[in-house]
Computed example of a mutant assay.
Amino acid sequence: MTQHPLDLATHLTPKGNGRLEGHTSPGYWNMMGPFGGTTAATLLRAALEAPQRLGDPVALTVNFCAPIAEGMFEIELIEARTNRSTQHWMIVMRQGDDMVATASAVFAVRRESWAHQPAALPKLPPAETLTPMDTVGRNAWLSRYEFRFAEGAIRFEPREDDKPDSAYSSLYVRDLPERELDFTALAALSDTFLVRIFQVLGKFLPAGTVSLTTYFHTDAAGLAAQGTKPLIGTADSKVFRQGYFDQTAELWGADGQLLATSVQTVYYKA
């Protein structure tokens, strides 16, 4: 294989007039469709590869409008506005006549400035002391990542009681096979935390992300410095109510820099 599975899964072929064509990947398949992180990464890659792209992504919001079927899809990329410091993109994914996902992305050229990081790096044991999660026989996308949980490991067997558990998880995570970190990979990694209601109730039930926003806190050089080292990740939720809940996540580099934060709204039926 000459390309990483993520590069193959997010590959896009330009068709002219701001339109690109891609294909879902069986290697990143989830329960009913492609892993949402792959969809987010694909939509971001459309803007990343635009010839007129300015700087690096600062924010990406993806709205999952409908189930994405296996097969071809088309992306429409629109440069909504470019200012002196920021560039705004609108991105639409379609399958046939169906709009299945939309996104907005903000890019900017980062400049050196006063910096301050009030957030504290989570304290985890060394990665090598934690056992990787066994993903054999699970949804295909899980095998595309290495998960080493320090707290709040994914439970695949239902709990005997219905008492809500903590929504918090902390872990080391990275691509499998190993891959140099870039914005495409980081966009996908921001969605690698299973929806929190599975963790809280200890069972799987109908649920799915409706909207995911990822904020990027470094430039391409900052990601390149990470190399293939695992990221430290945390995920949590604050409220489950009336069929929807929030989910927040952080992704930290090996040098203690906060690389990305995300928040998503998730539908559930319970």
Rank of each mutant, 00 (worst) to 15 (best):
N63M: 08
E160H: 10
P177S: 01
G253V: 04
R81E: 11
T86D: 04
A59P: 00
F149T: 04
T61V: 08
Y168D: 08
D134L: 03
E157H: 10
L171K: 03
G27V: 04
L259W: 11
G16E: 05
E160M: 11
E74R: 12
L189A: 10
W29D: 09
M93V: 09
T261M: 13
A9E: 05
A59M: 11
G152S: 05
G243H: 05
Y267Q: 13
Y215V: 00
T135C: 13
M99T: 15
P132S: 00
F183C: 07
R174E: 06
A47F: 12
R45G: 09
G22K: 02
L48F: 12
A40W: 03
A187H: 10
Q242T: 09
W252H: 02
K203T: 14
P5C: 01
R144F: 02
M32H: 11
S211C: 09
T213H: 04
I232T: 11
G253S: 09
R241Y: 11
F156D: 10
S170I: 01
G233K: 01
A66R: 15
V106E: 03
T129Y: 02
R45W: 03
W252A: 01
L258I: 03
M72Y: 01
T102Y: 08
A59E: 12
T228D: 01
A270C: 08
V239M: 12
S170M: 07
T82L: 06
S237K: 09
A224K: 13
Y168N: 05
I91Q: 12
F183N: 05
R196V: 02
T10A: 10
D246R: 09
Q87D: 05
E112H: 06
D98S: 13
D191W: 12
K269T: 08
D56V: 14
V263T: 15
P122A: 05
T82F: 00
L130N: 02
L77K: 12
W141F: 15
H11I: 00
R241L: 11
D162N: 10
T10C: 14
G256I: 02
T38C: 10
A185R: 06
E49A: 13
G227C: 00
P125N: 07
W141T: 02
V106Q: 08
R19I: 05
G16M: 04
L181G: 02
G96H: 02
N83W: 01
A69I: 01
T213G: 03
T82C: 08
Q117M: 03
T86A: 06
G202T: 07
P132H: 04
T82R: 15
